[in-house]
Design a protein around this nucleic acid. Structure first.
Lengths: 337, 337
DNA sequence: ATGAAATGCGTTATCGATAACATTAAACTA
DNA sequence: TAGTTTAATGTTATCGATAACGCATTTCAT
């Protein structure tokens, strides 16, 4: 592979001069510059980023650690992250934690050893605090997305989960629903807690008693089997007229389970959920959703991260961006008499 | 950041000895080994992968270049790729070309400068040959996925597009359809050509004349607007009773367009397509598809790539893996009288 | 015309690791 | 016991770039 020295030799200058030409730093006469550039062209020279990183102490690489790229929320988010990263000349490493703490921990290892300049991550849950501490210890900038972690100060891009949850409930309530069940992610995840809180608050506001049985706490996905969900559905009485799902993966699982019980949406049961379905949004049954600005989560998160990295010195106060969700009413909710 | 020298100093040994302990190479007495390990623990040492890469001339990083992670085929594929890469201790950089040659070219630049050990890529089309040549020149191993590029020899994981196309056609024909239209990706893409070929061959086999008007060639996505598609639909007469879509993005676009014309699937028109819909597969209208083994595309592709990298010396002949698609009959096709 | 400032370029050290060779000390052999 | 292995560790060079400093030449001002 051709190096800066090969260029230097062939152009009869020092490596330093070549470096100056490449980076447009220091002083180089026009004649020398032209000569060096010509040789670089001839030899098809491409600078070695690894060597650069080593001496500059920055890799120009960021890490995107999400839970599951297969979840459309994260798929779209990753596009936002990629676009923002590229715009600022950063490369992007990525990994899926599958909401799994030990997998997350492994990725923290590779993050530390690869010396990336920063990390954008959706933590698996509250216990992720230990992982984040490791980043803090070593001064690796990071920005959280979607989920807070108690005890950890950092920049963060969040959805207004509680508010959106209330709006979805409001929608269901206004359509006459009173028996509303919640299928939610793990309560060790802040956004799941917020969604639960919104759910509870709206029940209380409408003087409805909270039925413990109506709440099913599981994982935000991905799913292996439906037995847990089915068992939960079996013990529901009276059977809810409506369901609120904590994200779209849960909504799809729920839909599947309901269908296998012979229930149609919206004729027999109503369903609403968090997160839109991307290009599938207009497939039946046109689920009513709280559409989060997935792309913006990624784009803005990346921007915060890059700002942190760039202004490392005058590190301002932690920033928190809260993105509201948009309630998109489709036809998965039936109006009750 | 703590380096190998900090460890060496504190443990009263040379950096080389520390390196030996880290990599389990050479000879180190048990006593020294224990001492070094203890110090590494105390100082929370994590080796600098960049420094390693520079001297070892390998980055332990691969690049996954796809066209659009938002397309469920590539989403799933990327999981396969990630899993295989991790299994062998490789990190994964990634990028989306959006089927755009100049974006692809930019990514080739970063691929070359980051000195990744290899690349798994879905080329934007036949003109990608120029980009691949650049990789060949510099001896960067790569494996193609989904699409061949004329003039380029390489390992590849492909779907059996022609065969799957024929099967989908067979399905439509057996249901009585005779006026079948094709919405396809760019003919500069080998898989699009194969799909077209399967389509044509089946028409011929059934003595049906190929109607030029029935073929719409566009991009595999992502889409900005539907005007082209709508205009094409407008000029179709007789209006087809069935459509074959070259991938699922096109199917969704088509569905959308048909709906805005007031047509229901399958009551008014039938639709089949390539690629399954992941977790959305059982949303109405339950499209009949040729499901490709997306995960395997990624997983096997990565494996081929890693083999190439590992056995660089005794580089065997190019390998070609062809994965059959599975036709999953749902209910988007109407049986004609 | 002469000292000061500016220009153009080179030298050396460095980033953090590992390979290859060198050296010392211990263990073994005859 | 002297000589030879072998085990354990250290030294030096290197990967490919850039920073910091140094040294000639020009150019400029007075």
């Amino acid at each position: 592979m051709v190096t800066i020295y090969d260029i230097a030799n062939k152009a009869n200058v020092s490596a330093m001069t070549v470096s100056r030409v490449i980076n447009n730093t220091g002083r180089v006469s026009d004649k020398t510059r032209a000569k060096v550039k010509k040789v670089m062209q001839e030899l098809n020279y491409v600078p070695n980023q690894m060597a650069r990183s080593l001496v500059l102490q920055q890799s120009k690489t960021l890490f995107l650690l999400i839970t599951d790229i297969t979840n459309p929320f994260y798929t779209t988010l990753s596009r936002g992250a990629e676009d923002a990263a590229r715009k600022h000349g950063y490369n992007l490493l990525f990994g899926n934690s599958d909401e799994n703490l030990s997998k997350e921990s492994e990725y923290i290892n590779t993050i530390l050893s690869t010396r990336v300049d920063g990390v954008l991550l959706a933590p698996a849950g509250d216990p992720s605090a230990a992982h984040l501490e490791r980043l803090l210890e070593r001064n690796v900038p990071f920005v959280l997305i979607d989920r807070e972690v108690p005890g950890i100060q950092s920049d963060i891009v969040q959805g207004d989960s509680k508010e959106a949850s209330k709006k979805l409930m409001e929608h269901l309530l206004s359509y006459g629903h009173r028996n509303i069940a919640l299928v939610n992610g793990s309560s060790s995840i802040s956004s799941a807690r917020d969604r639960l809180q919104g759910y509870n608050e709206m029940l209380k506001l409408h003087d409805l008693s909270a039925n413990e049985r109506y709440i099913f706490e599981t994982s935000f996905g991905p799913f292996k089997d439906q037995s847990g969900l089915m068992a939960w559905l079996d013990q529901l009485h009276p059977f809810p007229t409506a369901f609120l799902a904590g994200n779209n993966v849960l909504a799809m699982e729920l839909l599947h389970a309901l269908r296998s019980r012979g229930l149609q949406v919206p004729e027999d049961v109503s369903v609403v959920c968090f997160d839109d379905f991307g290009m599938y949004s207009d497939l039946d049954p046109f689920i009513t959703v709280a559409a989060q600005q997935a792309y913006q989560f990624g784009y803005l998160g990346m921007q915060l991260l890059i700002e942190r990295i760039t202004d490392r010195e005058e590190a301002g106060p932690q920033k928190k961006i809260i993105l509201p969700a948009e309630i998109i009413v489709r036809r998965s909710v039936k109006k009750l008499a």
